[in-house]
């Protein structure tokens, strides 16, 4: 039997996990903005450390939760759903880390004419993740409302796709050198993959709700 204290513990840990993922994506967005504005590689290293630390913390919470979900007598349907959501949400933190790290390891050079679009893309991706995390939170308060938040995830993901398309077109029609164009495109695709993945997690949320539909 799942007692109130166990349920509370699971919900609290899930809440901390969501906050950590949100903080990780926020720090990635801030790192991209800072890099666009200052090109300060030392500061970038510090920011990436923060992103990595948060990603590591999200991993730790996920592992603890997985053990808890298996050891507590959670209803099997809930256990499968929560484990699926945990794993897929954790991948967003992984992508945030790899995106920020790419700026450093690949020495990405972002020409000034793309700064605003890239910063906007990072912002939209973050908002997309936040909407997805909100939909997850709704699952534990009033799961019928979770689908509304997933709808916002879909809208934001579409906006991110549009920015990505325009940006890549701009990159390849610019005077930037060939290999730099390819690197920049890869970077843009990584940023967009965060909103893509948030949408995938949102679809999972939708299924969790649909399974409990009457």
């Amino acid at each position: 039997m799942l007692f109130q204290s166990q349920k509370r513990k699971i919900q609290d840990d899930l809440s901390e996990f969501r906050q950590t993922v949100a903080a990780c994506v926020k720090r990635m967005r801030e790192a991209i903005e800072m890099y666009c504005e200052t090109s300060d590689r030392e500061k970038l290293k510090e920011d990436i450390k923060d992103v990595s630390r948060l990603e590591g913390r999200a991993d730790d919470i996920r592992r603890e939760l997985e053990i808890m979900l298996y050891s507590k007598s959670l209803y099997p349907e809930s256990r499968g759903d929560l484990l699926g959501l945990l794993e897929s949400t954790d991948r967003i933190a992984n992508r945030a880390e790899s995106t920020a790290t790419m700026l450093r390891t690949h020495h990405i050079d972002i020409p000034p004419e793309f700064h605003e679009q890239i910063k906007e893309l990072a912002k939209i991706s973050e908002r997309c993740v936040l909407a997805m995390l909100e939909s997850q939170e709704q699952l534990f308060t009033d799961f019928r409302l979770a689908v509304e938040a997933v709808g916002r995830v879909n809208e934001l993901e579409s906006v991110a796709d549009k920015i990505e398309t325009d940006l890549i077109e701009s990159i390849f029609s610019s005077e930037t050198k060939g290999y730099k164009k390819l690197l920049l495109r890869e970077f843009v695709e990584r940023v967009v993959s965060i909103s893509d993945h948030a949408e995938n997690v949102g679809d999972r949320v939708r299924i969790v709700v649909a399974k409990r539909g009457i």
């Binding site: 799942l2 349920k7 809930s78 799961f143 019928r144």
Partner: peptide, 15 residues
């Protein structure tokens, strides 16, 4: 469908 609740509460009630 009428009473607001989270999935854990719902599943706990059914279980």
């Amino acid at each position: 469908t009428r009473v607001p609740m989270g999935i854990l509460t719902r599943d706990q009630l059914i279980w």
